[in-house]
Amino acid sequence: MNRSTIDLWVGIFVAIGIAAIIFLSLRVGNLLTATNAPGYHVEAAFDNIGGLKLRAPVKAAGVVVGRVDRIQLDPKSYQAVVSMRIDQGYQFSRDTIASILTSGLLGEVYIGLDSGGDPQVLADGGRIAKTQSAVVLEKLIGQFMFDKASAGNAK
């Protein structure tokens, strides 16, 4: 086993190893598509964010246009303030509605944006005024049973 053969095989080994890492990062993972894409930040306040997590997608018409950056609780209003990064190429009107939605029955929670008619658009640091909180199943059932009960009483 002479030197040049060993060097050759080590070279091949290291080359395919690095190629595998690159493959995993780009094709399997989201190295290029995710972080550091140029964008701007907007905020929205919700009464309840349900199962929304960091890095959850922000979608408009089902297309991913950004990611959730930060989730904090406003100590004064007790609302959840969500900061999200929107990709540079997309503009949303100032009266856009932000809703917390679930993709499918067991799917992940995301923020859906419905653009409105306002000619002025949201800028970096802007705040979305109209929001729709997540649907919390327990409250829904409670509401349902309350309605049922009051309907029964009314009879």
């Binding site: 995993l24 094709r27 399997v28 989201n30 995710a34």
Partner: peptide
Amino acid sequence: WGNMQAAVDFRRDIFNGI
């Protein structure tokens, strides 16, 4: 491939694996 790429995060999954 599409779902895979959406769910696998470089920093959290691949980098941690490395």
